[in-house]
Design a protein around this nucleic acid. Structure first.
Lengths: 227, 227
DNA sequence: TATCGCCACTGTGTATACATTTGCTAAGCT
DNA sequence: AGCTTAGCAAATGTATACACAGTGGCGATA
């Protein structure tokens, strides 16, 4: 495995897991020493992270981990709405019904998993991931899938700080079930509208969960001294 | 100006202008000596071009300029539909009406420009660019604008080989006028539907113009020997 | 003559050394 | 006392050298 690929995944995962918090400066020498590689492959990783929007150049301080503000979340969801509605539309037109029927059965049984304990939640997130993969496979559009995957990286980072209480998870499961059934019925418009509703709820939940738990900086104002 | 930035722009423009045709192998040493820089900044440029989807790694031959097949064009337009419809929706909600009223007047006068000669066509393309900029400014969403800009790079490359006859340009101008008027009326749904129609026509035109003028490779099959 | 194996060459991946730019600090002058 | 300038230091941008992997060609053997 290439060092640059390893560095990219390591940094991306640390950013998504909030181990590298928004505003953290990623100095090249510091990170290359920490990851045990040279500056050259590290720079390749940083270029990719910049393209992903997970880090951004800041005027006087080099590359910093991008902020997650309510404003950022709203903007991200505006793009997400566009891409995911299109994706489920195409999935409804082209998808393999049998694949989504399996997901339907699992979603119908998911309430049993969500009785509050953590392993059940993990199983639910895994089911959502399989749903996403099924949609990706159904749309069969590399450009769209690439864009969606980039978005999902940001969304996972947001979710790490949003509180998904069991009630919300049951709601989300019901919304996903609606989408899956629309795809099975090959009803593209219903699938798109159900996705719209789902994302509206998800945005409300994300904003409620993170509004007062972000890094504190809005991303625009001056940097309060943090000695 | 940084060498890596210069190399990125030079290679991107050459790919968009079809000077570097699809299938061209971009060897690092070869390109670095050609551009008069070292391999290090060139590699940064290539990473960015890969993220843009203008070049892609191929198994045994390093990075090659990506192909433009009818299939690619259809896939690109599926993403474009999603993003541009969302963009004009948001522009209709948030845009500065005065800005779009200026564009409306220019679009009403554009038929005079399109009497077949090349300077008029140039002026029309410039007007479309100003329309795109106005939409970008109105949506005020960095994620969406970044995605749209990346798409437009591909679209310019496609347009370079599509034949935009005066009839099509007049049609496109009429469609743009419809979108602009919908934005002025703050009718988001009308703007989105008008954009859908416009992109449908644009896709038809792009496919008609490039179906038998691509590089010849479909992008999936084996490489026919070209000695 | 055909096939298999080895050698050489080309090209990418990585590391390190060097240069340039930018920001911070200190000192001197107004 | 405050502002400006100069110098230093650190970090990024760039270049080059080296190592390894992959591929193609050539030769030998069956």
């Amino acid at each position: 495995m290439h060092a640059s690929e390893m560095a990219y995944r390591a940094l991306r995962d640390e950013i998504v897991d909030w181990e590298l918090r928004p505003g953290t400066v990623l100095a090249e020498v510091e990170q290359s020493v920490r990851l045990g590689i040279s500056r050259t492959p590290l720079r390749a990783a940083l270029v990719r992270l910049t393209a992903d929007g997970l880090v951004a150049p800041q005027v006087g301080r080099g590359l910093v981990v991008t902020d997650v503000s309510p404003q950022n979340i709203r903007e991200l969801f505006e793009v997400r709405r566009a891409l995911e509605e299109q994706a489920v539309r195409l999935a409804a037109e082209r998808g393999d019904v049998a694949v989504f029927e399996v997901l339907e059965r699992e979603l119908l049984a998911v309430s049993d998993l969500l009785e509050g304990d953590d392993p059940g939640r993990r199983a639910y997130y895994d089911l959502v991931r399989r749903f996403d993969d099924a949609v990706d496979h159904a749309v069969a559009n590399p450009y769209l899938v690439t864009a969606l995957r980039g978005l999902r990286t940001h969304l996972v980072r947001i979710r790490r700080h949003a509180k998904d209480d069991p009630g919300r998870l049951r709601g989300a499961a019901a919304e996903h079930l609606m989408i899956v059934q629309a795809i099975i019925d090959r009803d593209a418009e219903l699938a798109a509208h159900a996705t719209h509703v789902h994302l509206h709820r998800a945005l409300q939940n994300a904003l409620a969960g993170t509004a007062d738990r972000t890094s504190g900086r809005s991303g625009r104002g001056p940097d309060p001294a943090t000695p």
